[in-house]
Amino acid sequence: MIRAGRAQALLHNVKNRGWAAWALAALFTAFYVALYFTEAFTPIAQALGLGSKWTLYGTLYTIAVTAGGIHVIRKYRHNRYQVIRTLVVIVVQCTFAYSIPLLLKFLHQPEYYFSYFWPLKFEYLTPSYLASVPLPFVLYSVVGSLVLVPLLAAFFGKRWYCSWVCGCGGLANTFGEPWRHLSDKSTTSWKIEKVTIHAVLIASVGLTVLLFFTYGANKSDPQLARFTGEFQSYYGLIVSSILSGVVGVGLYPLGGTRVWCRFACPMAALLGIVQKAGRFRIAVKKDMCISCGMCSKYCEMGIDVRSYAQANESFTRASCVGCGMCAEVCPRGVLNLVQIKRAGQ
């Protein structure tokens, strides 16, 4: 039941797909379309002394993560996992994803985001990029993307990245807090998610391999070079711009905060595969679940956590980003995020 008062009615409306949520979704979508496909923000950025529209966007993003993060920390101040995780999200955003790249640019170095890795930041493992940056950046990109990220995921699950470090997840878990419950929990959407996210992963890995192959062929085959170029520009348009930006954030008030992470992020797909084989799992306390469904309701990845809890099944789902909110909202303390040693490890 909605609380009394106009402000509360509006809040409910925004959080529950009312007209205000649709309006906000339209606004977010328009913002991203204007940002990605026009230069409308360039004059504003220059007037503010920020140089490019991307710096303006980064500034707004950092403000959103910080303000939302402070709200989240206050809301969940009794839960140290949430407090520490959110603090890390804010700090990573303010440093690795904002001020350090700006500083690097100022020092005439590559504007490098140390919190992003391939395949989320696709170009960090493309031959032309690697050829254009100094060796330390090359090493960080290669070792980070291919060794560090999967290794940590094997031990701690994908959460160390998806809900502690990643900027997309960071925005979802801070600014996106009012909409986390809107994710679809049906098995149908689970089936769709498995198809789409792995399709993007295949496209992403395939394109990377193709780029190296084309680079190695040294443009001796113009047809191949043209195909690779077209593939890359479509990938950039569809995955990097439309799916991660326009759809990813534009749909916050309608589809929940993790539409991109759940259905399309190649990094989430890759780490999900590692997670399934790794040590992370959600432990379910035996015979203590009362099927209230708060865990499922507040799972931003649309996992029907209740179905596992009421069946007394500890579980690992590839999509789980380990935000810990199921454990937070459970009124019987049934759920816990743990690392276990599986048989043979």
Binding site: R3, T187, M294
Partner: peptide, 25 residues
């Protein structure tokens, strides 16, 4: 339905459909 969660509907943290522990299918 899960009557243990009636309170969350009254507090607007859930809606009635969320009370159903199993998908209808």
């Amino acid at each position: 339905i899960s009557r243990t969660a009636l309170m969350y509907v009254l507090m607007d943290r859930m809606n009635r459909r969320d009370l159903e522990p199993f998908e209808r299918r």
